[in-house]
Design a protein around this nucleic acid. Structure first.
Lengths: 221, 221
DNA sequence: CAAGTTATCAATTTATCTATTGAATACCAA
DNA sequence: TTGGTATTCAATAGATAAATTGATAACTTG
């Protein structure tokens, strides 16, 4: 076999993983799994597609080495294989918004009116001085699977009725799944409508966690 | 338009970039562009495919925001859009070899017998004490487009006849395009066959350069 | 402006991918 | 063992993508 043919096989093998990113449906599944492992059924409901279809996409992802599957009684729980895969997804997400105007437009359209943001460094400083309260507005299960240290969980759905839990004399910072997730945007809008001072963290939990472990993200986990 | 429909549009937009990674031919082009900008004709020759086909793939990459095109007289020069795209490609390459056995196998098969490697940190230390000579065995144009500081250019093709240029009393370290490039492997094998002490650097020029600028690779360049 | 090079376009064929449907399988609990 | 739930399989139709071919357009040089 010629040398160039061998090189062709190599690129074909890499493309096995590349193909996994070619379908919007699969990207949506990856995005959900980036927050927490989930069963097929949960994924199907949350991504609004049929169970059979979801299962097939998950098998495609499994074939590309991007997710692991674990049987749990009657259901099967899928999870991202490791931080290298997570970081790959985040890199794609960030590059696409930086380089494709249509992504930027679609994101603005989905997220609605932008709200004031706070960056990582400022948040860390303000958490240290204690004049800010950090709120995780994702669903409870995702908070349980992992969250920023010092954050309290108030899922967006419960925000309205649990307003009293938040001290009224200090600023609220909300975060959610990431820059393309609407939860934190909506939370800040609601908080402001209730007369609170609020901003959203400009990154989500996966971004925060990866930045916290500054190992080389090119490598395997 | 419903909220979920807007989210669907967002993922469809991101998939525009994801699709770019779905074809082995395109990956080969990206890999070449990761070293240095090139014209359509050069890319077609180096990736061993027709000019028309190459041009079409390049247009696909351009549509995905991953390459820029510049007319230069009678030809058109393509280049990767920025470091975020480069780092995305490296992340895919590294994740695929870590997670897919077929990539690992295809790589081993293409690269042949493995040779001794040296890591980044050790190389830096040895360069400081001066008891090692670093050689860039990529084609001259790629060296010109950028190389590791302190490296000298001896393209693999010329290695045999230029052996005398290398001091015989110190170890030689060779590097090339990256871990999937056969040049450094072959260079080390030839050097050893000539009785030299030689190892290959375990990363290529793009990897080295990105690691040197420890900005967050998730962000745009 | 004519000739030659480089790149792109347009049309076609072939191959691959996606979503849907309905059936089949694996597991749990009674 | 039986019934119920969760997941996967198999088959199909529809949609997309890839490589090839030959023609066209853009530019440079003589």
């Amino acid at each position: 076999m010629s040398s160039h043919q061998k090189k062709t096989f190599l690129f074909e093998a890499i493309a096995l993983m590349g193909k996994a990113f070619a379908s919007p449906r699969r990207l949506e599944l990856i995005d959900l799994l980036a927050q927490a492992p989930r069963t097929v059924d949960e994924l199907a409901r949350e991504s609004d597609q049929s169970t059979a279809n979801t299962s097939q996409h998950l098998q495609a992802l499994h074939g590309a080495g991007m997710v692991t599957r674990t049987r749990e009684g009657t259901s099967v729980r899928y999870a991202l294989t490791g931080d290298d895969v997570l970081s790959l997804w985040l890199a794609l997400r960030n590059a696409s918004v930086a380089r494709l105007a249509e992504v930027e437009r679609a994101a603005r359209d989905y997220l609605g009116q932008d709200v004031e943001v706070i960056g990582r460094d400022e948040l860390i400083a303000r958490l240290r001085t204690g004049d800010v309260v950090l709120v995780d507005v994702r669903p409870g299960k995702e908070y349980t699977a992992g969250h920023i240290e010092g954050a309290r969980s108030i899922p967006l759905e419960e925000l309205q009725e649990r307003l009293a839990e938040l001290p009224s004399d200090c600023e609220v910072v909300a975060y959610c799944r990431g820059p393309f997730c609407a939860y934190a945007h909506e939370a800040v809008r609601r908080l402001k409508a209730s007369g609170r001072s609020a901003r959203r963290l400009d990154e989500g939990w996966p971004d925060w966690r990866l930045a916290d472990t500054p190992t080389n993200h090119h490598r395997a986990a």
